[in-house]
Simulated assay, not measured.
Amino acid sequence: MDCDLLVLGGGPAGLTAGLYGARGGLRTVILERGVPGGWAGQTDRIENYPGFPEGIDGMDLAAKFAEQAQRFGAQLETATVARVDFNGTQKRVWADGNEYAAGAVIVATGASPRPLEVPGEEALRGRGVSYCATCDAAFFRGKRVAVVGGGDSAVEEALFLTRFAASVTIIHRRDRLRAAQILQRRALENPKITFYWSTTVEAILGETKVEALRLRDVQSGMVREEEFDGIFIFIGQKPNTDFLQGILELDEGGYIITREDLSTSVAGVYAAGDVRSKAFRQVATAVGDGAAAAMAAEKYLADLVGR
């Protein structure tokens, strides 16, 4: 399939890029491997996105993004990118057995949850080990669950879990949270939430489902086992750039390095959203990235025609 602009990823950055590209008159295709909206679409409540003073459900916001992009003519397809060839003026992408060719590409593939990489995690994934509270919280109604992490995502998900679980324990390797003050206050005041400070998870235990956690006190070194029905892990993200190794310039963490106009090390290829190397990763910053990348791509394509 040939198009002017090919957007890889259908989160806030990708959908905004698709909206701007299509509205600018470009034949635009967005490839998304899952449900449009990315991790924002799996967030229970987004309270800091402009225009929604009472907050908005992440899935609802993602649906509005997708609807608006498609209204302007962007074509949204479900496909997983397997490999790319960015040599030459026509960029080529292979996804689910189909080949796409475009004059410009915007990579907005986002990032995935970073695993703990402890014994039992992989074996019990989906059987008590989760990385998405809004996806799996209902399975833990009346249960005791742990949340690992101390940032915004960990605290937000812990608060959401209190709607279902009997108790939620936040396990953090430091002695204080890193989350925004408003989230910290809500968590500290919630009677269902307890905190294990300066503690790490050494192993996840269970035969066919999560039954307990092996915990270590980082100050004393003491190790103990404690019963839990589930564990939700929010310790950061890993950029979805494995398919770009050796193709685009990446930083030490695997994020795409971009210039001010969000162009990458390859002409005609741009990056937007959580996948690129930057200081802040929010829905609002992703939307800004998507708009900027699409306008830069539009200018790039116009310059090609004018040569």
Rank of each mutant, 00 (worst) to 15 (best):
R185S: 12
L215Y: 00
R127H: 13
G38V: 01
G25C: 13
I257S: 00
P36Q: 08
I171R: 07
F232L: 08
A212R: 09
S198G: 01
C135D: 03
I204D: 09
L15P: 08
R173Y: 11
R163C: 02
G88A: 07
S220M: 10
T169I: 11
S265G: 01
A166E: 15
G41F: 08
L116M: 06
G128S: 05
L183I: 02
R45W: 12
G51L: 04
E32G: 09
G151Q: 03
A187K: 10
R114S: 10
A146G: 12
M222P: 00
A95G: 04
N190W: 08
A302K: 12
Q68F: 08
A292W: 03
M295A: 06
I46Q: 01
T258E: 03
E260G: 11
R127G: 08
T89A: 13
G51E: 05
L248G: 13
E99P: 03
T28R: 11
D57I: 12
V283R: 07
L301A: 02
E77N: 11
R224T: 15
L116W: 02
K143N: 01
A296D: 07
A267H: 06
L161D: 07
I170P: 03
T80L: 11
F52R: 07
F65L: 07
D175W: 08
D289P: 00
T258I: 15
S167V: 00
L15N: 05
A293D: 07
D175Y: 08
F195A: 04
G268V: 14
G38A: 01
V81H: 00
D303V: 10
Y131H: 13
D4M: 09
T80W: 13
E122L: 14
S277D: 13
H172A: 01
L19F: 14
A179D: 03
R92V: 14
V210A: 02
W94A: 10
C132L: 06
V287I: 14
I256T: 09
T241A: 09
V148P: 03
A146I: 10
P119S: 03
D251M: 09
S277M: 02
E202I: 05
V118C: 06
A82I: 11
A69Y: 06
T194C: 10
A294V: 05
L76C: 03
Y300A: 07
A104V: 09
R45M: 14
C135K: 01
N190A: 14
L215N: 02
A69E: 02
R127K: 15
I233R: 04
R224Y: 08
V148L: 14
Q219V: 15
S265Y: 02
E121F: 11
L31R: 03
L15M: 15
A13E: 00
